[in-house]
Amino acid sequence: MNAVIIVTGKDSKGIVAKVSAKCVELGANIADISQTVMSGYFAMILLVETDGISVPFPDFVDSMEHLGGENGLVIKVMHEDIFNSMHRI
């Protein structure tokens, strides 16, 4: 299965590195990244494959959200099916 990770917050050095390092640590494979900075505000969307993650999916969500909290960012992780359900017939 795939999950979407959304990262937002004030821009600083190393955000991409920290998030991607956490993905590797937990066994998630990054399939796509889109990232931008607007007026000092950082926004990134990752699509990750989570079939090989080393922890149950709810724990993966908690770990990523915790990483956000530690770094002054908001990180949300959502199963891709919610987007596919809402926006595709």
Binding site: V4, I6, S34, I45, L47, M86, H87
Partner: peptide
């Protein structure tokens, strides 16, 4: 691939 606009709309 999921569209960025769709992700933003769902989040909003």
């Amino acid at each position: 691939m999921i569209e960025r606009n769709d992700i933003a709309e769902t989040l909003k």
